[in-house]
Nucleic acid binder design. Structure first.
Lengths: 239, 239
DNA sequence: ACCTGAACACCGTTCAAGT
DNA sequence: ACCTGAACACCGTTCAAGT
């Protein structure tokens, strides 16, 4: 019996296709999306681009994901998972602070995530787990009811708000240095006008343009965080 | 001499075209853009749509504006102008607070503006004027240098962060009630899972889902604002 | 069940051509 | 100077058709 009796190698030899022969996974697609977002931002993200990176056609992504929006929601929850890795530390102040710092670090790593937070309500598993984690620390410390909510919200709002400001600051500096050659022509006039009409602002801009943005941003972050935690402590003790 | 001697009515009679016969203005275009954004959000905004609303072709907009991004930058500064209308009140605490409240109200009126704040650095005239206004109040109260910057940033970050959270909250509730009919089927399981895995969160969600979102959001806003102002006052007096 | 390829309706932007 | 109309290169999404 030669192999010719079994054209194409016979059914028995041919590896049986796995029950589900998908080339893709939802996780892989989210991986690819996060990678694109990290490197090229929202501008660089398209279904066709993700598909190409995965060696596949754009249409096939819709087998795993109902819409691009859904994919972005998955991507957001994916990076929120990184914040869940924050260690548990004793004491509500330290617990909230480390959670806030880890959250901030994540947002600075994945700047596109801020946009997502702004656009859509976010009910993914990691987002929920994070919320529970924070609530736990505060509840153990005796916060309850509306106080609990307000404390959580205040810290979280600070993290998001300060991250936005920091990124905006970086972008401003980047854009300014990008202008480069053509800088002196129009920009000089622009700056002169600012100096005349907004003296305080001009002085502050001049003072801060030379210092290290990262260090100063972190200083402000910690400053505000302390303010907030002090405020929470004061109101908490009052009951 | 009959009118036939002057075909087409003669040059003298024909109204001389205005030196610039533009049908549009930059301001009108920005007006139209803001109107679309307010009513239909970013999804509804396209150059073709704006042009149609103005009775003009999409291409002609590019005579007044270099790119859609530029137009959005103009739109953002336009609504920031509404915040400039905030009255000047005596005392740095009250001055900062009213500025913050006006800013918040504006962001809730033009929810799309938050996205713009997140995406791009913002150096428009109204943004600069606003910054100068805040700096003035603080400088008069004796804040200086890095303290001045930190105080400004802390309040501003709170405004932005809390507005984001409030809108996200509203959207969540809207999306939930939107689901409507199909709610019980899958959503019930979703909620049950949350309740099991995140008991604290579940309790808080249950408690807050019935109350008035607007009232509670405002309460939290004022709570955090007080925390921050107290913190600033404490650190300010320390020097 | 999973993927392709082509199509549809829509983008932002450019630009010759008109007035 | 200002606007049109058509074009270009891209989108997200759908869907018959293949395997």
């Amino acid at each position: 019996m030669s192999s010719a009796d079994f054209p194409d190698g016979s059914v028995w030899l041919r590896p049986q296709r796995p029950p589900r022969d998908r080339r893709l996974t939802r996780d892989q697609i989210v991986d690819a999306a996060v990678a694109v977002l990290d490197s090229d931002g929202h501008r660089g993200l398209s279904m066709r681009r993700i598909a190409a990176d995965l060696g596949v056609t754009a249409g096939s992504l819709y087998w795993y994901v109902r819409t691009k929006d859904d994919l972005l929601e998955l991507a957001l929850d994916r990076v929120l998972g990184e914040v869940c890795a924050a260690p548990d530390v004793p004491g509500w102040r330290q617990a909230l602070a480390t959670l806030a710092r880890h959250n901030r670090d994540m947002l600075l790593r994945h700047q596109w995530a801020l946009l997502e937070l702004t656009i859509r309500p976010n009910l993914g598993p990691n987002a929920l787990a994070l919320a529970e984690k924070g609530l736990n620390s505060l509840a153990r410390a005796g916060f309850a009811d509306a106080d609990l909510d307000a404390a959580m919200a205040t810290v979280h709002d600070h993290v998001v708000g300060s991250a936005i400001a920091e990124i905006a600051w970086r972008d401003t500096l980047a854009r300014m240095s990008e202008t480069g050659a053509g800088w002196d022509e129009r920009a000089a006039g622009f700056v002169r006008e600012i100096t005349e009409r907004h003296p305080l602002l001009a002085r502050r801009m001049a003072a801060t343009s030379e210092i290290d943005v990262e260090r100063e941003s972190e200083r402000r972050f910690e400053f505000a965080l302390e303010c907030i935690l002090d405020g929470l402590a004061a109101r908490h003790g009052r009951r």
